[in-house]
Amino acid sequence: MIKRFFLVAALLCASTAYADEEDFDHSLQADPKGDVEISNVAGTVNVSGWDRQVVQVTGSLGEGVERLDFRSEGKRTIIKVLLKKSTHWGDGGDADLQIRVPAASRLDINTVSADIVVHDVTGAQRLQAVSGEVTTEVDAEEAEVKTVSGDVSLRGEGKTSVLNLTTVSGNAQVSHVAGEITATTVSGDLTLSLDKLTRARLRTTSGDLSMRGAMADSARVDGETISGDLSFTFKSPVDAEFDIETFSGDINNCFGPKSQSKSEHGPGRELHFRQGAGSSQVRVNSLSGTISICDR
């Protein structure tokens, strides 16, 4: 009898817990190149492109979620998780969303701690997360990724695009991106593997940066750090003018002349030289961080 009581109680608890999670499955017609705006606080946002002119949202909404605002306004589709007033951080406001969008849609995603995953979307992307991780693929369109502490993993298709990446303390890994890149972090580490780079502006305060890549003709690379270490590995043959300077950091290079002391008594180093015809320009500065230049 007692066993039966506990069994019934357990089943009731289980069914209550299940009832707290609300499943969601809705679709709306959408413009093939429309804007899709998504916001979620916690959980996941998983977006993939498809060849239908429909935005489909499936997933589950946690007990702290009041409702999912899913509507379209002209070429815009809005998907917004609204929390109950009483919901606090880490208090059941999770929503796990699987979203299918027309492949050429432009994405605008904002989350707090929800992870963002995007694949097979060729339109422009603007992704922001506070602590959520961002994993995305970019095509030839512009991409802007910002996080506070969330890590970023971004993969390109080797097509020329414009990438703007900003983290405060999050780490970022970027691969097969070509064209123009601006990457900035305070204390995060940036690892970049780039194809056919035309313009790069790379800055860290104390984070380390490692860049490997091939420069297009007349490319321009600007790197700067205060106390982080910057490492550049350029694909051979290198054809660029190098201007590298530190206030107190070291300069290591595996090609070109040796760096010189900036002054007789100061700790700073500088290195200015031309490799090949010097069609591209590489300028790297640091206060105390070490700068390394190599080719492969």
Binding site: V41, V81, L82, K84, K85, N110, K146, V148
Partner: peptide, 16 residues
């Protein structure tokens, strides 16, 4: 500016 902007876009609680 970035943190302000990110914080601005954090989804608000439902008004219901």
């Amino acid at each position: 500016a970035n943190v302000n902007q990110i914080a601005d876009t954090i989804p608000s609680r439902s008004q219901s």
